[in-house]
């Protein structure tokens, strides 16, 4: 393994120049509360992101991100900017898995998701998995900014390679801030040339990995970390972050179905903890 193969610290993330053929697109979504209900004054589709309103579920407005073209491909620079303003209830999903493909160039693609949640607002970001296909390189970032009284439920799932193909290269930087202070700061790098990414310290031969994050305004009681699964069939830990009002589930699994099972079970525990009488 050479020096160039080492994981770069976040600050050194290469800033790829967009390939001439690459798509530059920023889709924007903003939810506001009009005193009675959550409304969606801004639904700006762009490039591969087509934003569509779904039927609300109770008080919660819902939006689905449909893939309007194959993306991200090498050289693309994509961004998705979602703001749930004060007092809103919003859920955003995607219609299908996002597949990072090599495209016509080996240049990296970038995909930046910015989630901003206002006071007393609640955002669920529950996309379908991201698949890192053979030969692709994707640098993904999540920047999450919460207010003191925001609630966030975030799930992200990553599949490293489609069936029986080697993984592409996928780097993901996740930064969650609450009231301006960092809550979670994470950087994962999978797929060659990342060193030992499939070794026993990182993914241990599993090809599916994911996380479920809950940040609540009040402490979420979870007396003990929840341990799920087993090494061969996939396993998961749900535990509080240092910031006591946040719970994180981290899972690795051999298949996407098994991964979703683990995260769904973790979610059931999270819901129990969040609704049980606290303190």
């Amino acid at each position: 393994m050479t020096a160039a193969a080492a994981q770069t610290p976040a600050g050194d993330l290469p800033k790829p120049r967009p390939h001439p053929a690459g798509v530059r697109a920023t889709a924007r979504l903003r939810a506001t509360h009009n005193g009675r209900a959550t409304t969606l004054p801004l639904l700006h589709s762009d490039g591969p992101f087509h934003l569509r309103r779904l039927r609300p579920r109770g008080e919660r407005a819902r939006v689905c991100v449909l893939g309007a073209m194959s993306a991200p491909l090498g050289g693309d620079r994509l961004a998705l900017d979602i703001t749930a303003e004060a007092h809103t209830r919003l859920e955003v999903t995607t219609s299908a898995a996002t597949i990072a493909l090599r495209g016509s160039t080996t240049d990296p693609a970038t995909y930046d998701v910015r989630l901003t949640v206002g006071e007393h607002a609640s955002l669920n970001w529950l996309p379908q998995p991201l698949i890192s296909a053979r030969g692709s390189t994707l640098h993904q970032t999540y920047e999450v900014d919460l207010a003191k009284t925001s609630r966030l439920l975030l799930r992200e799932e990553q599949l490293l390679g489609r069936t029986a193909e080697p993984s592409g290269h996928l780097s993901t930087r996740l930064t969650v801030r609450r009231d301006g202070r960092p809550v979670l700061d994470q950087h994962t790098v999978y797929g060659a040339p990342a060193p030992a990414w499939d070794g026993p310290a990182v993914l241990g031969g599993h090809r599916a990995t994911g996380q479920l994050l809950l940040v609540a305004p009040e402490p979420v009681p979870l007396p003990e970390p929840v341990l799920l699964g087993e090494p061969e069939r996939g396993h998961c830990v749900l535990a509080p972050l240092a910031e006591g009002t946040a719970l994180l589930a981290t899972a690795v699994a051999p298949t996407p179905t098994r991964l979703r099972d683990l995260l769904d079970t973790a979610l059931a525990h999270v819901s129990d903890a969040a609704t049980s009488p606290s303190r």
Binding site: T8, A10, G11, D12, L203, T250
Partner: peptide
């Protein structure tokens, strides 16, 4: 790489420091 990132902390804050993580070590 770590020392280069550390040189930038005074000006740019702690977010420039590496945050590399490994799911299995946590689990």
């Amino acid at each position: 790489a770590a020392a280069r990132a550390a040189e930038r902390v005074a000006v740019e804050g702690v977010t420039v420091l590496p945050a590399a993580s490994a799911p299995l070590l946590d689990i």
